[in-house]
């Protein structure tokens, strides 16, 4: 059972790291708006009209 003398501190370090990451994310504003960022994935980065393909225009 002596392994827990290593494992538990290790676990606590991981928890600390997770908390640090979470604090950073909250401070970065990632939890302020949980809805609209989902849309940014499906939206095109560049407008379709600005990248026309010559000679292959579809109606």
């Amino acid at each position: 059972m002596t392994i827990i003398f290593l494992l538990i501190p290790l676990g606590l370090v991981l928890v600390g790291a997770a908390l640090w990451a979470f604090f950073w994310a909250v401070g970065d504003g990632q939890f302020d708006d949980l809805e609209s960022p989902g849309w940014s994935v499906v939206a095109d980065d560049t407008p379709a009209l600005e990248t026309p393909i010559d000679g292959e225009q579809t109606g």
């Binding site: 606590l12 604090f23 909250v26 504003g29 939890f31 302020d32």
Partner: peptide, 24 residues
Amino acid sequence: TRERRVALKRLVVAGFGMMQVMMI
């Protein structure tokens, strides 16, 4: 926004802490 951020941090700290302590 500030109020919500602080509350969220507190909640998660309490949640993580609870999980660890419960486990032990």
